[in-house]
């Protein structure tokens, strides 16, 4: 099976991909994450490869300090990505870099064999997806979305009420578009809090802060 994570630039695709991979690995499944971000040299899931390995998750993509991330200058697809269509187990594809990146998927032969599900990650505290019409418009930019993932947060200022305010908008957008609301993702302590409530979070996916850690900023 394959899962492809899409969303606005900065919505948290890589972080959610990592969280989802750890969740599936925790169920005893063999999980591989494919890093398809060809644009950014940083904020990419490959930076978390070592940490993910500790959870038994394998990452395919350029290791740090290798060719990608020359920004506008054109990038090289990691050859190993060409084979992911024939891998067994759970394949998670982090396309990275904005809603337009789904166009890169045509570079991956055999993708259809994975029967991938396309998940659209939404942070309702990003201005473009802060309203129901905004979410609907953003989702329309990507064809064939199978589900919404709520990743509403304000960094360290996040609490359950804030996540809930995002959940309400995503429910509305879901009703309007017919795209199901699949899961709510949040950092582990908040995810644990969510488990204690009766609110309709759908699935709860804990996140681990693996992608942001590379940044030397307090």
């Amino acid at each position: 099976m394959g899962e492809v994570f899409l969303g606005e630039y900065g919505a948290g695709k890589s972080e959610v991909s990592a969280g989802r991979a750890i969740l599936l690995a925790g169920r005893g499944l063999p999980v591989t994450v494919a890093d398809l971000d060809l644009t950014d040299p940083v904020f990419r899931i490959s930076q978390a490869a070592e940490k993910l390995a500790a959870y038994g998750v394998k990452v395919i993509g350029w290791p740090e300090r290798y060719p990608p991330g020359m920004g506008e200058a054109g990038n090289v697809l990691f050859p190993g990505l060409l084979g992911i269509g024939w891998l067994s187990g759970e394949i998670i594809i982090d396309v990275g870099y904005g809603t337009e990146s789904h166009r890169l998927l045509n570079l991956i032969p055999g993708l259809a064999a994975l029967n991938p599900l396309f998940y659209f990650v939404i942070n309702c505290r990003q201005p473009l997806t802060a309203t129901v019409p905004g979410i609907i418009e953003a989702a329309r930019r990507v064809p064939g979305i199978h589900g919404f993932v709520n990743n509403t947060h304000l960094g360290k200022d996040t609490d359950l009420d804030l996540i809930k305010s995002g959940a309400e908008k995503i429910e509305e957008a879901s009703a309007a578009t017919g795209i199901p609301y699949i899961a709510t993702a949040s950092f582990k302590p908040l995810a644990a809090e969510m488990e204690q409530t009766d609110y309709k979070w759908h699935e709860i996916w804990p996140l681990y802060g693996l992608v942001h850690g590379s940044f030397p900023i307090k």
């Binding site: 630039y9 900065g10 942070n123 505290r125 990003q126 201005p127 802060a130 947060h153 304000l154 960094g155 200022d157």
Partner: peptide, 14 residues
């Protein structure tokens, strides 16, 4: 550009 002050989480370029 916004109705009222809005607390958002986003990239600097945005």
């Amino acid at each position: 550009i916004v109705d009222d002050d809005q607390r958002m989480f986003m990239t600097g370029n945005e």
